[in-house]
């Protein structure tokens, strides 16, 4: 039998058990970001998601410092991700406070909070480099993501979180759709719009934090927004669009993780985002709901009929 190309071997799950678990974990993460991303996009929370993602950096650094101070390994995932979640929540609260309590607009609030938190994180990273402890080198993977050195248990934990996120979206699906389409109508009829918005933000936060290890904080927003943007070209129906978006997210993350498995030096997040981008391009052209091709054919048929 002819030798398969190494990428094909990995894609067809013929690599080692650990690689397979990591790839499936990445796919679960991609599905979750794709599903949550639909509402991040429809409710126009893409920029907030990006700010929140960048704001995890100081948290990761603080988590590292705290773990080392308490005698744990600086790469202990629980410390790093708890820290990430904490500063992400702080950033979200800061954005809301600035937008509500000052005369600055929301996009100004978002941009300044993103930059400030990220800058603080970079300073902390520099401080960590001067500490006399091991493991600092591992921290930069949280910027652009990596699958190398990922433990099986880590991948399984991330996958479980991803499944929980998808389940919550499924249970709140019609209410999330309603507030995304017509928030005033929802509010007028007694739906808790503020709470549902908070739920969207919380889900974004969870997928951002669990995505840090594989995709990294700089690019995770792309895995939230590119899949739904691509899915929009395949369906005019929020439900079907969400399924397609989850599938595109899962495929991008799976494929990106596979490439990074055969060349461990490539930043996994960047590869995943490029795969997602190619799927977006293909969707813009070939999408069955509003792709350029069906539109061109529709326009030609109209001209013929006229």
């Amino acid at each position: 039998m002819a030798e398969l190309h190494p990428l094909l071997q990995v894609l067809l799950l013929q690599a080692g058990y650990n690689t397979i678990v990591v790839m499936l974990g990445a796919a679960a993460l991609g599905a979750a970001t794709g599903v949550v991303g639909v509402f991040a996009m429809l409710r126009r929370r893409a920029l907030v998601a990006d700010a929140v993602a960048h704001a995890t950096l100081p948290g990761v650094a603080l988590g590292f410092i705290l773990a080392v101070a308490l005698g744990f390994s600086g790469r202990n995932l629980s410390f790093l991700l708890s820290g990430a979640a904490l500063t992400a929540v702080l950033a979200a609260l800061s954005i809301q406070w600035i937008a509500n309590r000052t005369r600055l607009t929301e996009d100004t609030a978002i941009a300044s909070v993103l930059a400030t938190f990220f800058a603080f994180g970079i300073v902390l990273l520099t401080v960590i480099q001067t500490l006399k402890t091991g493991g600092q080198a591992g921290l930069d993977i949280y910027l652009l993501g990596a699958t190398a050195g990922m433990l099986r248990e880590e991948a399984i934990t991330l996958a479980l979180f991803a499944i929980a996120v998808a389940l919550i979206v499924a249970l709140l699906f019609k209410e999330l759709t309603l507030i995304s389409f017509d928030a005033d109508y929802a509010r007028a009829h007694g739906f808790p719009v503020r709470l549902l918005d908070l739920a969207i933000l919380a889900l974004v936060l969870v997928v951002v934090v669990i995505g840090l290890r594989i995709v990294g904080l700089v690019l995770i927003v792309a895995l939230l927004i590119t899949p739904p943007a691509a899915a929009r070209f395949w369906s005019d129906h929020t439900g079907r669009m969400t399924v397609v978006s989850g599938a595109i997210g899962a495929f991008s993350a799976y494929f990106g993780a596979a490439i990074s498995a055969i060349s461990p030096d490539t930043p996994t997040g960047a590869v995943i985002v490029l795969v997602a981008f190619f799927l977006l391009l293909a969707s813009i052209v070939f999408g069955t709901a509003r792709g350029l091709l069906v539109r061109a054919i529709g326009a030609r048929n109209l001209r013929r009929a006229a």
Partner: peptide, 17 residues
Amino acid sequence: FPATAGDVVAMGLYRRI
């Protein structure tokens, strides 16, 4: 928004669902 006319009208039923 990705919704059909039927989807939007069904929103009027959400409270009862």
